[in-house]
């Protein structure tokens, strides 16, 4: 097991390294470059000045060379300064990260609290009216464009019936806990509608799979209490795939958070990523994107470990099959 984890960590490091180069290269291909930005902000600079500046900042060197010097600095803990925030990148991130953790954590707790009972109940009464309604709502949840859902919620709850704030984390001048909660309602709702839909579907599918198994049928046939069999024995086994999928969904959730945060001007990681990409804040974009990749990789790794932990039948050595 330890060997497996070490191997996976090694692989993740390779993915991160490759990803950092890919993003570095891509960001270099985005419109404008730092010197262009300087020129546009200072009309006195001549093309000759620009060329000299490029040399000073090393922007005329080949891509790989520039990347390597960035990587060396990054490994030393220096990720550069944010152009938009005019501070070291790492100093900016914590506040935004904390806001996202609040948003996603809240949404996650609500989603799971709703999804597990709904999915289990629907699976236990497959093809009942309840099941059909749950199914319909789940499909609606995963099919709705998040940005449009956000717009609709704003129109209904901030414009037509103005009871909730449409943007930010708090009113100007501060409003205490209640104010902060009010600001969270719409973003959390937006994010939660999507994840409830997908989680419920996973729980339902996993439960149906488990309920088909012989040992569950045997338990039911032997007269074990139906509720107990479903909510204890079956659910415990159904949780194995669910845990995996939920961990894997963290990446998707982050994407959802990007849109949600942007729509509600909520200062979290998603908005930070978006703003830095759109605002030519290269250092910030690079670091935040890498951070997002690392989170997804870590979630995948945790999912696989949890899977192995929960299901003793799984082996992670890779077996050589019979091949023609």
């Amino acid at each position: 097991m330890t060997r497996y984890i070490i191997q996976r960590l090694g692989e993740s490091a390779v993915v991160i390294a490759l990803m950092s180069f890919l993003i570095y290269a891509l960001i270099g291909l985005m419109p404008g470059d730092p010197i262009d930005l300087m020129i546009s902000s200072d009309p006195r600079l001549t093309p000759a000045d620009a060329a000299r500046l490029r040399a000073v900042y090393g922007l005329d060197r080949p891509l790989l060379e520039r990347y390597l010097s960035w990587a060396v600095a990054a490994l030393g803990g220096d990720f550069g300064n944010s152009r938009l925030h005019v501070r070291p990148v790492l100093d900016v991130m914590p506040t935004f990260l904390l806001n996202t953790v609040k948003l996603m954590g809240l949404s996650f707790v609500i989603s799971v609290t709703v999804a597990i009972p709904a999915g289990v109940y629907a699976a236990a009464r497959q093809n009942s009216r309840f099941d059909h309604i749950v199914n319909l709502l789940c499909f609606a949840g995963i099919s709705v464009p998040v940005f449009w859902l956000a717009l609709m919620l704003i129109i209904v709850f901030s414009v037509m019936i103005p009871i909730l704030p449409a943007s930010g984390v708090g009113s100007i001048g501060g409003g205490g806990v209640w104010d902060a909660v009010r600001h969270l309602v719409l973003p959390v709702t937006t994010l939660t509608i999507f994840s409830i839909g997908s989680y419920t579907r996973f729980v339902r599918a996993a439960m149906i799979e488990v309920l088909r198994q012989d040992y569950i049928r045997t338990a039911l046939a032997k007269g074990a209490g139906r509720a107990r069999v479903i909510w204890v024995h079956a659910l415990r086994n159904a949780m194995i795939p669910v845990v995996t999928v939920v961990a894997l969904s963290f990446g998707t959730l982050l994407s959802g958070a990007l849109i949600t945060e942007t729509m509600f001007a909520y200062p979290g990681m998603g908005k930070l990523i978006y703003d830095s990409i759109m605002g030519n804040d290269y250092n910030m974009a690079l670091v935040t994107l890498l951070f997002a990749t690392a989170v997804t990789l870590a979630a995948n790794l945790l999912a696989d470990i949890a899977y192995a932990w929960l299901d003793p039948r799984i082996s992670y050595g890779g077996s050589e099959g019979v091949r023609p």
Partner: peptide
């Protein structure tokens, strides 16, 4: 000879 699958975690 067919090698059998590795056991749990690489044996």
């Amino acid at each position: 000879h067919f090698p059998l699958g590795h056991g749990l975690f690489g044996r």
